[in-house]
Write a protein that binds this DNA or RNA. Structure first.
Length: 263
DNA sequence: TTCCAGGCGTATC
DNA sequence: GATACGCATGGA
């Protein structure tokens, strides 16, 4: 980890990292750009970050928070250069990685990722951000399982989440009661993890896959939405390369960004 | 006005 | 197991 402490800020040198690409590629929904700075939240933490010359500046950040939280959140200990090399064996992926060279997978909190992607269904990214923002405003922070379990649809009406409100409540109830144990799901075999997540109303194959990839860092989880469906039918009619299985979720993120913004 | 968005539950066969 | 349809909301 190549960083230094300067006043109240942390200066980090990091390859394969672009803020815009990482924070605005549809994996997290609580980051906003203001000029050249990004302001965002993850669980109860918040951060202002921007790039300056060869460095990423973590503004007003304690070294302890950087080490204990943000290093993991931004997945700084994974070598994305190595991953991109692995992906370069495939022509389409190679182009996607060239275009979206600075994407990293954010290691988000499991409950936050799960709720976020429940909200994402049949929805567009600006609206997903709006609903999550209003939800955090309503509760004062990202809601806990307990808080969602105690909510009712009327209480959640300010979110304008539509039919997804009842799904959020069911998710809160099942996680809070322990019927769904996210910590166990994190460490179990992915087949079992999927099966368990889908016991929650409003969690189907796509949402489960997103929760696994972004909230539990199962890099083989492969969310297929309308965009990835288009990529698969156009460029991978024979199926996705099996030799990339272990990291196909990360590959998917490069492809997702590429097809939406690069073509 | 109609279509679409990081889908899913339900009914029906 | 596959397919069809409705669903809340708001921007294009």
């Amino acid at each position: 980890m190549d960083y230094l402490v300067k006043g109240n800020d942390i200066y980090l040198k990091q390859d394969d990292f672009d803020l815009e690409q990482t924070l605005d590629c549809g994996q997290a929904f609580r980051w906003e750009k203001d000029g050249d700075k990004f302001f965002g939240k993850a669980l109860d933490k918040s951060l202002t970050i921007y790039s300056k010359n060869d460095y990423f500046v973590f503004e007003n950040t304690k070294e302890k928070d950087f080490i204990d939280f943000w290093v993991n959140y931004f997945d700084l200990e994974t070598d994305y250069g190595e991953l991109k090399e692995l992906f370069s064996c495939d022509k389409t992926l190679s182009k996607a990685c060239e275009f979206a060279w600075g994407i990293r997978i954010l290691k988000q909190d499991s409950f936050e990722a799960l709720c976020s992607f429940i909200i994402s269904q049949n929805n567009n990214i600006p609206r997903i951000k709006g609903i999550i923002s209003r939800m955090c405003e309503l509760f004062g922070h990202f809601p806990t399982p307990k808080q969602l379990s105690e909510a009712d649809e009327n209480m959640l009406s300010p979110l304008r989440a539509g039919f997804r409100s009842k799904y959020l409540i069911d998710c809160g109830k099942k996680v809070f009661s322990g019927e769904i144990k996210l910590e166990e799901i994190k460490t179990s075999e992915i087949v079992d993890s999927r099966k368990n997540l889908m016991k929650i109303k409003g969690v189907g194959p796509k949402v489960a896959e997103c929760a696994l990839l972004y909230g539990m860092y199962k890099t083989e989880a492969f969310p297929v939405d309308v965009w990835i469906k288009r990529v698969l039918s156009e460029y991978y009619p024979e199926g996705f390369p099996q030799e990339l299985y272990k990291y196909q979720g990360i590959a998917q993120q490069y492809l997702f960004h590429y097809i939406r913004k690069g073509l």
